[in-house]
Nucleic acid binder design. Structure first.
Length: 468
RNA sequence: GCUCCCUUCGUCUAGCGGUUAGGACGCAGCCCUCUCAAGGCUGAAACGCGGGUUCGAUUCCCGCAGGGAGCGCCA
């Protein structure tokens, strides 16, 4: 039987980073085994589900490039199917109508907790023969009360549960909408899902799902429960640990491949290897090698990984991505030099496109003030002959390229009997406004003749004013 | 409270009875160097605790402690 996996988020918000990891592992498993991957939207919670969330999920999936062979399938399109199955179960006696009010159930649970028991439905409507007037009932599963269920989990091994600890789960709400438990089971069966790969938080739901499958007479899929991703402090991953919305990583200038590479190493490893292309992930991924312990999200490592991708990116592609990113951020981008040269100059100094934009700010934007500390240190009297000499040399330059620029600087340094550092720093402050930039000759090339000459004059005036 | 899961450097992890417990991020130092990076080298840093089993436990078993999840007409 060919492998078929699915990712089944509920559209109650953006696509979460933890969700992407779950989707990735399901996708990898399907791709690894030449199977198919389904995207299913679990929108049975009609109050919280929104069209905007569905769109956010689709956008997120598209951005990270996790393609699906079927879907998006909406559960809300399938309501008649669940209702029909529930009726069949009623007829067969594997399910029954429950007329208990929410208040009644709440009181029941409160009493059980007070007695130190596991709060659960006590089955009081199991044998009820008559309807209660004016009450629209829910439909509950008549689940076994004795014996055990065992979940054969690909990452945990066998996990067994006592049926006595489980209660009769609600299949259909009183308004005729299926619950999550019924929806997943029916859909996984109808769609022929062979492997259910999902978060660890569903492990204790699995015995209930198996009961439903048995009542339905469908086969039990293979389960694999993935460890959770926690925040840096070990708590549930949330906004305060950095971005949890995938699209925020796009907006911060991360590469989707780097994000996926980071995520695949959370709970999975292949020896000491850190860098995995998509193809390698697919080739090497194995559920048996998935860890059992939860892991913590480390933004620093993601950042490092992103730079590793930045470093080896094709220059033309990177330039295109950088241009698109700047446009996305509303950054004007007439540079003095080609964008390819800019990205080559800054890729070593930026882990993300956002950082690249910040680091190369002066290439695209004019300024009228120098960084105070840098100016104080480098734009002083001793810098005047340097600025003057360089200005003259550059004005006379025929081709504005790194090598001839470098030759000019070298000549000025030699003329003045200065080390290169005494030339580079004042220049750097003059043309960038600060003390940090790529090698000065490259910096000048990339900023462009017009801006460089203008800034040199500005710096000259600045230093002159300080002297007098 | 009850049920289930988990436990190797700060973090991600390798390990699958005998290792100087390896790698990566981060951190520190050095080298390179016109600044900052990138890169190279070096360093500090871990088997939660207690019992077993065994000639020998990080590794297998049992407790404990600590963490996490579930116990909804949410998913």
């Amino acid at each position: 039987m060919p492998v078929k996996t699915r990712f089944a988020p509920s559209p109650t918000g953006y696509l979460h980073i933890g969700g992407v990891r779950t989707a990735l592992f399901s996708w990898l498993y399907a791709r690894r085994h030449g199977g198919s991957f389904v995207l299913r939207i679990e929108d049975t919670d009609r109050e919280r589900s929104t069209a905007a969330s569905i769109q956010a999920i689709l956008d997120g999936m598209a951005w990270v490039g996790l393609d699906y062979d079927e879907g998006p399938i909406l559960q809300s399109d399938r309501f008649p199917r669940y209702a029909a199955l529930a009726e069949e179960m009623l007829a067969r006696g594997t399910a029954y109508r429950c007329y208990c009010s929410r208040e009644e159930l709440e009181a029941m649970r409160a009493q059980q907790v007070a007695r130190g028991e596991n709060p659960r439905y006590d089955g009081r409507c199991r044998e009820r023969k008559t309807a209660v007037a004016g009450v629209s009932p829910v439909i509950r599963l008549r689940s076994p009360r004795a014996g055990t269920v065992v979940v054969h989990d690909l990452v945990r091994g066998d996990v067994s549960f006592n049926n006595a600890d489980l209660d009769d789960v609600i299949l259909m709400r009183s308004d005729g909408v299926p619950t999550y438990h019924f929806g997943v089971v029916v859909d996984d069966a109808d769609m022929g899902i062979t492997h259910v790969i999902r978060g660890d938080d569903h492990l204790t739901n699995t015995p209930r799902h198996i009961h439903i499958q048995q009542a339905l007479g469908v086969s039990v899929p293979t389960y694999a429960h993935l460890p959770m991703i926690l925040g840096a402090d070990g708590g549930r991953l949330s906004k305060r640990h950095g971005a949890v919305n995938v699209l925020e990583y796009r907006d911060r200038g991360y590469f989707p491949d780097a994000l996926l590479n980071y995520l695949v190493r959370l709970g999975w490893a292949h020896g000491d290897q850190e860098l995995f292309s998509r193809e390698e992930m697919i080739e090497l991924f194995d559920l048996a090698a998935v860890n059992t312990a939860a892991s913590r999200f480390d933004p620093d490592k993601l950042r490092w990984l992103n730079q590793q991708y930045m470093l080896v990116r094709d220059r033309r592609q990177l330039a295109g991505e950088f241009a698109a990113y700047m446009a996305h951020r509303g950054q004007p981008q007439e540079a003095g030099s080609a964008l390819e040269k800019v990205v080559d100059a800054y890729r070593e100094r930026a882990a993300t496109l956002e950082e690249m934009m910040q680091a190369s700010h002066y290439v695209f934007n004019d300024f009228n003030e120098f960084d105070e500390k840098s100016a104080k240190q480098h734009l002083k009297q001793s810098a005047l002959p340097v600025l003057t000499g360089v200005l003259q040399g550059l004005q006379a330059l025929a081709t504005w390229e790194r090598e001839p620029i470098h030759a000019v600087l070298q000549a000025v340094a030699a003329d003045l009997g200065l080390g290169f550092g005494k030339v580079g720093q004042p220049l750097r402050v003059a043309v960038t406004g600060g003390a940090v930039s790529p090698p000065i000759d490259i910096t000048l090339e990339v900023i462009g003749r017009e801006r460089v000459l203008r800034r040199l004059q500005m710096a000259q005036a600045f230093a002159q004013a300080r002297v007098s």
